[in-house]
Design a protein around this nucleic acid. Structure first.
Lengths: 374, 374
DNA sequence: ATAAATTTGTGCGTATGTATC
DNA sequence: GGATACATACGCACAAATTTA
């Protein structure tokens, strides 16, 4: 070892080994080392660069160069996996592909790999995947909660993620027990928008269909109720219909059929739907009943999915950021990953959530209450 | 990656992965690389330095820089990942989510992890992902080819997969140069089914729209031609319309508009579409032109996607196995993985493909040629 | 066999950009 | 906002090892 940079290298290494520099302690800056050893900055950087590559040091731009904590990943051989896990309820249906795409494309661009897990809204699957994620080493996890409105049996697995310092965040909804960072719609406001839009069009007999095993559905329902209260409109007893994942294909359609049997004066003149998927389903029922949308009955969807634009009657609906939400989730999780790697300890985000503002998207499935149905 | 040295780095890594540089072969000298990339020697050295540290290259003073033999250091802890990579063109659109779901659910059940990569039908992205897959260790790869009808610039990467004994298979289409195992529709027969159905309904002036930058489109077109020949029907010169991914949103719609300007006696009475997505798009055009489907004009889609059932006019279309195809692909790839692990040498499958039989799904977008348009 | 050319290794100076405190 | 520290990039010079004429 006679080269200047290896002299510097060895000197620094000694200082680490003899405890002059403790783990996470800042070492001298490059310019200080220049003076100290009487070499150029380039030479200092060569030495430090080698030590960084060998895991002795790590650099932080703007802050300094720090002694690494080598007690940790000794055997780990730094495979540089760079992968993020993405757990969603469904992956092929509805707006989920768009959300996933937003996340996938951003993460790909950043050189991360995306591993997909879909729970089919089943807690058992969620548990299996969390186990897998804990076993292998993922850098971070994006979760779309399974049945977020009911209590979650897998809380312990999430706590383990925290213990192992694997950052995670939730989208669309969150488990209340955990208070994780989450990115959601303002679903309550969305529900209000849907309902107020109809009220402003003159409707007072508005039936609402809400899926209540996830948190979005309960919040949208809350918005529906609030809108009625705000405009001092009584809600007909049969006008709130709740359903679950299991009966989503049958119950709302059946209930609507029943409601339509009422005489025209009593039956609802407008429908608020939990989402576009349901709205499209109900459109079929209305068509069968020979009711014209929006002349005879108005209907509002939620999520502004591709479906809203596909049918003959273009749906009035509420915007959902979809791929934008996915991309934001990707950005935030990478940020969390970076921070967790740097500090190796629990971080606290300034905010614990990001909320997207819903907007009403007016198309032609809603119209003012017409005379004949009055 | 915008820094110059990482551009150089990635470029060199690509050349290693695509086989330009074989193990122990000398790569270009630093001064050659300077000229080639138009950067300073310092930058070249940074790039090479990184790659040396990561084990891609080794340097010999006075002799040159050489490609390392990476097949050796597999001692690398063998984490028993059990993961499969899935490369598709799109992941959020159309029938792809269903295919992916079929594969994902099966692989999950078998304890495999699924990593998703979507190319957006761009060869450049496909290359990036193949590099990633070669770098990390995947057990197997399912590929949905990007622009399968045009020659593929990434053939070398697939050959490298074979060299490294990573099994792969293709779905929906395949690269002709490679003769990989593939699972496809019988697209030619599908095209015939579409066209014959219309011919049997009495149509003779049938316009066909085909996306010809993937192999499915060209095969479906072939089926369209065959059906005409079989029934000895001449094809009007303007009745074959081809388009590509880039102009799919504009060209077919514009061409159809032109065709509809013809007098009723000359204009087509039926349309064969490359897929349902296009059919839905064209339905909009027909609606604008105040033509009733199927009374005034018949239209046939392809793939039997969820879209076919969503619109006011339910599309007559050709079945696509979708999630079934995904699941089969998953089964086959696991089989190949098992075999490749057992024998450690090139396997030959008995068959080199599985072909799904298409079936016509009759709904109400097609009708017998009516008197008035005759 | 020797000299010349080539190629990597070491080292310095300088400038600009960007992140952090 | 300003100071500090690291990140990227270009230029030059000479040394040491190897190959080639």
């Amino acid at each position: 070892m006679q080269t200047k940079y290896s002299i510097v290298k060895e000197a620094i290494k000694s200082q680490i080994l003899d405890g002059t520099f403790q783990p996470h302690e800042k070492i001298s800056s490059e310019s200080e080392l220049m003076e100290e050893f009487g070499v150029s900055r380039h030479t200092v950087r060569l030495a430090i660069g080698d030590l960084v590559n060998q895991g002795w040091l790590y650099r932080e731009q703007g802050a300094g160069t720090f002694c690494a904590d080598r007690s940790k990943n000794n055997a780990q051989s730094m495979v540089e996996q760079k992968s993020i896990a993405l757990i969603t309820t469904y992956l092929s249906d509805y707006i989920f592909p768009s959300i996933i795409r937003g996340a996938e494309s951003y993460l790909s661009k950043q050189g991360y790999q995306v591993s997909l897990f879909s729970t089919n809204n089943d807690h058992e699957n969620e548990r299996k995947f969390l186990e897998k994620i804990l076993t292998q080493q993922f850098d971070g996890v994006i979760v779309e909660p399974t049945k977020s409105a009911v209590s979650n049996p897998n809380i312990n697995y999430y706590l383990n993620l925290e213990r192992e310092n694997i950052p995670y965040l939730m989208i669309n909804a969150y488990y209340d027990e955990l208070e994780p960072f989450h990115i959601v719609m303002d679903d309550e406001k969305g529900g209000m928008l849907q309902t107020e839009h109809l009220i402003e069009l003159g409707h007072t007999n508005i039936v609402g269909f809400f899926k209540t095993d996830d948190i979005q559905g309960t919040k949208r329902m809350k918005g529906y109720l609030k809108a009625h209260r705000k405009h001092a409109i009584d809600i007909q007893p049969n006008n709130i219909v709740t359903y679950n994942t299991v009966d989503k294909a049958t119950k709302p359609a059946a209930v609507l059929k029943e409601l339509l049997k009422e005489p025209a004066s009593k039956r609802p003149t407008a429908i608020v739907c939990y989402n576009d998927e349901l709205a499209i389903r109900l459109l079929d029922i209305l068509r069968e009943a020979r009711l014209k949308v929006p002349e005879d009955i108005s209907i509002v969807g939620f999520d502004n999915s591709f479906m809203a634009d596909l049918t003959e009657v273009k749906l009035t609906t509420v915007s959902h950021p979809q791929s934008e939400m996915g991309e934001l989730a990707a950005k935030v999780i990478l940020d969390m990953v970076k921070k967790s790697k740097a500090s190796k300890k629990q971080q606290n985000m300034e905010n614990d959530l990001i909320r997207f503002e819903p907007k009403l998207v007016e198309r032609n499935s809603t119209a003012p209450l017409s005379k004949k149905t009055k």
